[in-house]
Design a protein around this nucleic acid. Structure first.
Length: 629
DNA sequence: GCCGTTTTCGGCCCGACTGTTTTCAGTCG
């Protein structure tokens, strides 16, 4: 979310709370009064995603229509703000309590009000009459941008992917200005790729494998001084589109040639300019993602790293700061705006940030969500790290739907340096996951007890805790009675069935768990699986509030297909005063890796170790996690 | 279209690569 201009300045807390960044300052005059409509009450409320999509589409249509770039950019900036806002924007408009939204001025404000009140936007509908929506779909073709889409539509009346394909294969496009037979071929290829392989984002675990392979291959090459994965992978976004690799080398052309020759390369992209030395290239990995490789001159890596790590929004802020100081910033370095221009390059990112008057900002924070303001105020968080974790509070065994014995999982947890592990097999009603009956629970407790005894005899201080992942049933009950629940060391509650219930019902179910004194942690609160299952429809603010009030801990589930809470929600929950655990939800030995992904999302949410209970030593952890109303 | 105590008007982030333009526009990240 783009930050507000009036970030707090008192050095009383680590970071400006998200709510502070978006709340209109008291002396900031409201936009002129607009009628607040009860007429809106029977109109379905548009979500932030829908509002943002409409604004993005307005941007696309304006661009196809040849509108001035800054107007187009204004709609997209406003769309970004809304897409990233933790506040339910349409609801806020209806209630007349509109937060300050960066990039939303008078004109877009009025359009948002109309959308909130009526669910429609006349301006948008007019535009759609001028520019058919199907023309916008042409933009999905890689290499085909808005200008060309507009020309195709105006000159050749092409307004859909099918029409584009037909025209290109009949050789009709080459008659248009700026088009050739080669362009037609390129478009046909792009269309075919688009149909074959819709752009798919990688889960972190899969991206990690690809990163490892590329890095290992290139590191051993001659003349390579460093190989550094950058881009959204380095920021550990929850999914990765393609993998950006930076290589520090004195001989970029040789590096590129070597990459093209790797056995795992399915298709090599551009070879760079025909004259002069190529500095970057793209390859398609066999059964894997696209790799974008950029080379950088030795000793000047700082600005390259910053530039190619991003995010784009963060970089924009840095370049604006540079310009305010009289410098232009690009990947190559700083160029002064004086005549003659002066040039500065730096070996490290620390020096680049330092030149702008900023402390080093961790890649996990580089999203323009207040990190620049926090850095300027000296209030960047000290982010939690994997080494801080002493325990894992969510793991399974073959007693329910895990795939390894209790003993084997515990051994693996210990091998990975954990001091304690909570075994949390599923409760009875989740029969698909072979949930435990009360009798089996007692039996399992004895097994855990025996194992701990054996570990103590060996003199190890690792401890296995007995817990369960307790199902919150569709009719709002907990699987086990309080007497049984009270005997567990730790109880985590979650919800796997009846996911489509209306919001009020889902909230009521969660409330049962939050208000039960035996429930310590809510596991994967949103219930999503990335790209597979949508989020539960919850009143999130109320959820965070009640969890904070009852001191029920919220999980950051590290499974790379869950990452739940996600970074934004965990940040909002942090601002609401919540406490967290970061867990693997391991069903296999290898899934203890999930702790890495969980920590990564927690860092993106600005969490510090003091916010995460399983960074505490065992006794303190147990005292803290069970300390609730 | 948005924004601002060095501006209510005049700015708005930057460069590589591609294709076909013989000097640059479009696309992408």
């Amino acid at each position: 979310m783009p930050p507000a201009a009036d970030a707090p300045t008192e050095a009383d807390s680590q970071a400006p709370a998200l709510s502070e960044q978006i709340t209109r300052a008291p002396d900031d005059p409201p936009f002129e009064e607009r009628p607040r409509a009860s007429r809106g009450d029977d109109v379905p409320l548009l979500g932030n995603d829908e509002l943002a999509r409409i604004l993005y589409e307005i941007g696309d249509m304006l661009e196809i229509g040849g509108e001035v770039p800054f107007k187009i950019g204004a709609y997209r900036r406003a769309a970004d703000t809304i897409a990233h806002s933790p506040v339910d924007i349409a609801a806020a408009y209806r209630e007349g309590a509109v937060p300050r939204l960066a990039g939303v001025g008078k004109a877009i404000d009025e359009k948002l009000a109309e959308l909130a009140d009526t669910g429609r936007l006349r301006y948008y509908e007019r535009l759609r009459q001028d520019v058919p929506p199907s023309v916008v779909t042409l933009l999905a073709v890689p290499g085909l941008g808005p200008r060309t889409a507009g020309e195709l539509w105006r000159q050749a009346n092409i307004s859909s992917l099918d029409e584009l394909e037909a025209a290109a294969s009949q050789g009709l496009l080459r008659t248009l200005r700026g088009m050739s037979a080669k362009t037609e071929q390129r478009l046909l290829e792009a269309l075919s790729n688009l149909r074959k392989r819709p752009p798919k984002r990688l889960r972190l675990g899969i991206a990690a494998d690809a990163v490892k392979r590329v890095t290992r291959s290139l590191t051993s090459e001659r003349g390579v001084r460093a190989v550094i994965p950058a881009g959204s992978w380095r920021r550990r976004r929850e999914t990765i589109a393609d993998i950006d690799i930076l290589v520090e080398s004195d001989d970029p052309a040789a590096v590129i040639e070597r990459l093209h020759g790797m056995p795992w390369v399915e298709r090599a992209g551009s070879l760079g300019p025909r004259t002069g030395g190529a500095t970057r290239t793209t390859v398609q990995m066999m059964h894997g993602p696209q790799i974008d490789l950029m080379t950088m001159p030795a000793g000047a890596a700082g600005t390259y790293l910053v530039h190619f790590t991003g995010s784009a929004e963060h970089n924009v802020r840095l370049r604006e700061m540079a310009r305010d100081k009289g410098w232009s910033l690009s990947e190559h370095g700083f160029t002064s705006l004086t005549d003659p221009p002066d040039k500065r390059t730096f070996a490290t990112e620390e020096e680049v940030y330092g030149f702008l008057g900023l402390p080093f900002i961790d890649p996990a924070l580089r999203e323009d969500r207040g990190e620049i303001e926090a850095a300027l105020a000296g209030r960047l968080p000290t982010l939690v790290s994997r080494d801080d974790l002493q325990g894992d509070c969510h793991t399974h065994s073959d007693w329910s739907d895990g795939h390894y014995t209790i003993e084997r999982m515990a051994e693996e947890a210990r091998r990975r340096g954990l001091r304690y592990q909570v075994l949390t097999d599923h409760s009875g009603s989740l029969s698909i996951a072979r949930g435990l009956t009360p009798a089996r629970v007692d039996e399992q407790r004895r097994v855990v007890g025996d194992l701990n005894e054996a570990l103590a005899k060996e003199g190890t201080d690792f401890r296995l805790l007995h817990g369960c992942e307790m199902e919150i049933t569709p009719d709002g009950r907990l699987d086990y009675d309080d007497k049984l629940l009270a005997r567990y060391d730790v109880v985590i509650a979650s919800l796997h069935v009846g996911r489509r219930q209306p919001r009020a019902q889902l909230m009521a179910r969660y409330r049962v768990a939050l208000r039960n004194k035996n429930v310590d942690i809510i596991a994967h609160p949103s219930g999503r699986k990335i790209g597979i299952r949508d989020d539960l429809d919850l009143d999130w603010d109320a959820f965070y509030r009640e969890a904070a009030e009852t001191r029920t801990v919220l999980e950051v589930n590290g499974s790379d297909e869950r990452l739940d809470l996600d970074d934004r929600r965990a940040r909002a929950a942090l601002d609401a005063g919540n406490r967290f655990t970061i867990d693997s939800d391991a069903h296999y030995l290898g899934e203890f890796d999930n702790l890495d992904w969980g920590v990564a999302q927690a860092r993106r949410a600005w969490l510090e170790s003091r916010n995460v209970l399983n960074t505490l030593p065992l006794e303190e952890f147990l005292a803290a996690v069970t300390d609730h109303a």
